[in-house]
Computed example of a mutant assay.
Amino acid sequence: KGQMDFTLSLPFSRSAIFHTKFFLGAGMIAGVHVVSYLIVYLLKLGLHPIETPEFNSRYFYALLSALMIYSLFFAAGTLTGSAISQAIVGFSTSILPFMLIGLPIIHLDFIIRTSGSWVDTSLNYLVSPISPITYITNDSFQQEYQHWFNGEAFIIPLVMMVIFYLVGLVSFVKHPIERNGRFFLFSKMDRPIQIMVIVFGVLGFGWVGFSYDSLLGYFVSMIIGGVVGALTSYFLI
C-alpha cells in the first residue's frame, strides 16, 4: 500500500505507471520463455532427438498462455483492494465460464435426464476454450474436439489477454485510490458479485446433491449452497 501511494504521488500519469508495470512483468515472462526456448533448441541440435512434434508452436502457445494468465491477475489487482482479494478474483475469473455456463448445463442435464454425452461435448467445445484455467492445465479439448476455427488455440488466449489488459488499464486509470482494504475498489461491484457468489453456491452444491439421485437431496444441497454462498460473500466482500 505504501509503495503504491508513493508511486502515485510521483509526476507520472496513471497510464504511464500502468504500462510500465504491465510491460515490465510481461517482458520478464517473455524473456524467461525465450531463454528456455534457446536452451532447449541448442539441446535439440546437439542431442538429435528422434522427434520433437510441434516444438515451436508449443513454446508459442505456452508464452501466450502465460501472458494471458499474467494479464488476468494484473487486471484483478487493479480492481481489488488487497492481495488476497486479487488472488481470489483472478482464480475465480479463470474458472468463470465453467460456473457461468457449465453449471447450468449440468443442472439442465440432471433435470431432463439425458445420456450426458452432449454435456461433455458442450463443456469441451464451448466452455473449455474460453476458460483461462484451461490454458495452464493442458485440457484435452485441443486434441479430442474439433476447433471453432484454424488457430483457435492461439487466437483465443491472445484475445483474452487484450481484454484483460484493457480492463486493467481502464480500472487503474478511473478509480481514485489504491489498496484501501476493500475487496473491490469500485463499491458498486459488491452487490452484483455477492449475488453471483450465492447463485454459484446454489448451483455448485446442487451439483454435489446429484449423487443422492433424489429431488430432496438436490434441493437440500442447493439450500445449503445458498447459505454457504451468502456467508462467504458477506465475510469476503
Rank of each mutant, 00 (worst) to 15 (best):
Q143H: 09
R113S: 10
S85E: 03
Y37D: 02
P157E: 02
F141I: 05
L63E: 08
F60M: 14
A76M: 08
I84Q: 11
Q143C: 09
L24Y: 12
P53K: 05
I29G: 01
A87E: 06
T121L: 13
T114F: 08
Y41I: 04
A87S: 11
E51P: 02
A83C: 09
F110T: 12
A87W: 03
Y70P: 09
L100W: 14
I136Y: 05
A66Y: 01
W148T: 08
H147W: 14
I95Y: 05
Q142E: 11
N56F: 07
I95Q: 06
S140T: 11
T78I: 06
T137G: 09
H48I: 08
T121Q: 13
F22S: 03
I163Q: 06
L126T: 01
S71W: 01
R113D: 13
I111M: 14
P53G: 08
G102I: 04
S65R: 00
S92Y: 02
F60W: 09
S128Y: 09
S57Y: 10
N150L: 15
E54L: 10
D109K: 02
F74N: 00
Q142H: 10
N150S: 15
L158N: 01
M161D: 01
Y41E: 08
V34Q: 06
F55N: 03
V159Q: 03
L45Q: 12
T52L: 10
M160G: 00
L72E: 00
I39F: 11
L63H: 01
S94N: 08
Y135R: 12
S36D: 10
S128F: 03
L63W: 02
I155D: 04
Y61R: 07
D120E: 15
